[in-house]
Amino acid sequence: MSDEVKIGVVSCSGEDCLGGAISRLATLKMLNEIRPDETVTICLPLFLAGGEEERGFAQSFPTLAVDGCNKLCAKRATEKYSGKVSDAFDVSDLIGKETAASKPLSTRYLTQEHQEMVNKVAKEIRIRFEDILMDYYKNAAQRIKASGKTPNCGCNCGK
């Protein structure tokens, strides 16, 4: 893995309920606005429809699963076909179970209230993302220490 680690954020498809739509929009906000250079994602169904490269996603990237309901499809499918996730949460714990289970949302009818839910979930993604990132660097430093080797800094300073 390169020095610039990327974190995978995997959202459920969320066609069945509002929670899924919010999960999807918050993941896209993370991907496009909050941490565009450090976030990667994958369409969940690609674990089955794609190839080895797609199934290797959770081994290639520390991964956060974001689910819209308590079926936890993003977490369970990622762990079934790709690898263990670093963290996961259910959007319904943030916006309320009843609200999350309400009918699916078209972005045509996105209200200020929905946008606030998206922002709340995106904030939670960012917090967990930063924890995963911190753990990754902590573990990397421990691995280097254990190996007894000094990392090559990549410039010509001779270190």
Binding site: S13, L48, K71, C73
Partner: peptide, 11 residues
């Protein structure tokens, strides 16, 4: 009606 594709993926 629809069925959530992610749910299908879980098998």
């Amino acid at each position: 009606e629809t069925v959530c594709l992610a749910y299908l993926v879980t098998g």
